[in-house]
């Protein structure tokens, strides 16, 4: 009888241990799978928003082309309209709203490798400040037009982002490799890019993380037109 009771106690204890173990295993497994689901939902949202962003930019480019054609039709019928259109064409070109080509440089920035003493930092990633610094350097050397991964820089352009994500204006984020194209005096721009004292942040990380910076002068660089918003609702002419 006492042996039977002993078996019963062991069975109950085993059952309890089993439940505790099962619960522990279940909770261990649930956390990662929930993380995956949440992460995948976020990724899907980003993908949907990026698709919508690309669609809107295509529509804006189409609308601008249609408006340009309608204005050209009107200009063909009126000298006043023709003079106005000529002025606007020049202003549009300077604002980045017209595709351009000409001699220039192509600059390539690519992520380095995480160093053993990077402490989980993101210094090996190309960041928005790197892109901003290269764009500023190119403009300082007389660049007449600049594009980053096919996104045209305008007088109102800004750079933001985190880690290796680079956000330019209303476009989707750009990541490494980042290609910058600029039209202008290619010898002057190449000389400035070659100057060891230029781009100190990038050069330091070239040594520390093998961040990749290359550039070459080209006889003909093509840049697309800007395809996003250039609204200034708060500005009035004085």
């Amino acid at each position: 009888m006492s042996r039977l009771a002993g078996v019963g106690v062991v069975a109950v204890v085993a059952l309890l241990v089993g439940f505790i173990l099962a619960d522990q295993v279940r909770s261990q497994l649930l956390t990662p799978s929930n993380q995956v689901a949440r992460y995948q939902a976020l990724v899907r949202s980003v993908q949907d928003l990026e698709a919508s962003n690309a669609g809107s930019r295509r529509q804006i480019a189409d609308l601008r082309a249609q408006i340009d054609a309608l204005e050209s039709d009107a200009a063909a019928r009126s000298a006043t309209t023709q003079a106005l259109q000529s002025q606007v064409s020049d202003l549009r070109a300077h604002a980045g709203l017209v595709a351009m080509h000409g001699p220039g440089v192509e600059v390539l920035l690519r992520n380095g490798v995480p160093g053993p003493d990077s402490g989980g930092g993101s210094g090996y990633l190309v960041n928005f400040q790197d892109v901003q610094d290269v764009v500023n350097l190119l403009f300082a050397q007389g660049a007449e037009a600049v594009a980053v991964n096919g996104r045209r820089i305008t007088p109102l352009s800004s750079f933001s982002g985190s880690e290796g994500q680079i956000v330019i204006d209303q476009g989707p984020p750009v990541t490494s490799p980042v290609k910058l194209d600029a039209i202008g005096d290619r010898n002057r721009m190449v000389a400035a890019l070659d100057d060891p004292s230029a781009l100190p942040g990038v050069r330091a990380r070239q040594v520390q993380f093998q961040l990749h910076l290359t550039f070459e002068g080209l006889p003909d660089v093509s840049l697309p037109a800007y395809d996003s918003s250039l609204q200034i609702p708060n500005v009035a002419a004085s």
Partner: peptide, 17 residues
């Protein structure tokens, strides 16, 4: 309409630039 649109755009682009 075209003259007005072009005049408005010219003014806006001059401010932007």
């Amino acid at each position: 309409a075209a003259d007005q649109a072009l005049t408005d755009e010219a003014q806006r682009l001059r401010a932007i630039e």
